[in-house]
């Protein structure tokens, strides 16, 4: 799924410009780091892709569809093709690890047998099978992050959005999470990940989009990040 931003500006009430005149294109199967300081507009850019927010000006198109013109009833169907890992995990606290992951497939009316198989599969992929009956509050930050990744993988999305997925993790756990993300990308899934972790960006040399005060200041293939 390719992503296109054409002269996108996002202003929040009363008058805070989070992104200004952003134009970029991300091709299907790319791995892209969105980097920048806190408050540079990274999360806003990702939230525009997931259609949590709409641009104040310009066009955000995913897979050729202008997200602003998308009907509200179609949004859930679009999101089923977008795997999202949020900075704060966004797990349902009242559900167990297994139930959190199964939920995304159940919402699509996938038969129970397939839900069971796929849930087991993705939980194993992130190495949390023994924790499947626990609730998010009983898990460490790293484990919750892995649950969020497993949930995002459950629907086999063609676009994977990760907002600071290693932000709360120690180096070892962060490396594990990155391994999973590279594996997802290797399967042809577009991955857009925001981070300000220099070590991670510099270790893999992927495309780097750098933001500063809401403006795109660098878009470099095989780039690095010096903070």
């Amino acid at each position: 799924m390719n992503i296109t931003f054409s002269e996108v500006t996002k202003t929040f009430e009363p008058d805070i410009t989070a992104l200004f005149d952003i134009s970029l294109n991300i091709e299907q199967g790319e791995f892209v780091y969105v980097v920048g300081q806190t408050g540079s507009g990274k999360s806003t850019l990702l939230r525009l892709i997931t259609r949590e927010i709409l641009p104040s000006a310009g066009v955000v198109a995913v897979g050729g569809y202008d997200l602003r013109r998308m009907r509200r009833a179609d949004v859930p169907y679009y999101r089923r093709d977008v795997g999202l890992v949020a900075q704060d995990f966004k797990l349902i606290q009242s559900l167990t690890v297994y139930e959190n992951i199964a939920f995304v497939m159940e919402a699509m009316s996938v038969p129970k047998k397939l839900v069971t198989e796929r849930t087991k599969d993705v939980i194993n992929q992130v190495g949390l099978w023994r924790r499947r009956s626990m609730r998010p509050a009983q898990l460490s930050g790293g484990e919750q992050q892995r649950v969020a990744i497993a949930r995002a993988l459950a629907n086999s999305p063609s676009l994977f959005i990760a907002d600071e997925p290693t932000g709360n993790l120690d180096f070892h756990t962060a490396a594990e999470v990155m391994k999973i993300l590279f594996a997802i990308n290797a399967a042809g899934v577009t991955v857009v990940m925001s981070t300000h972790n220099q070590a991670i960006v510099n270790a893999s040399r992927q495309r780097v989009i750098e933001l500063e005060n809401g403006k795109l200041i660098r878009d470099e293939k095989g780039g690095t990040y010096s903070g």
Partner: peptide
């Protein structure tokens, strides 16, 4: 409300 927001974010329809 938080749960509802998450459900919508991960692809559940409003009716569901």
């Amino acid at each position: 409300r938080e749960e509802i927001g998450i459900m919508y974010l991960v692809g559940a329809t409003r009716a569901y």
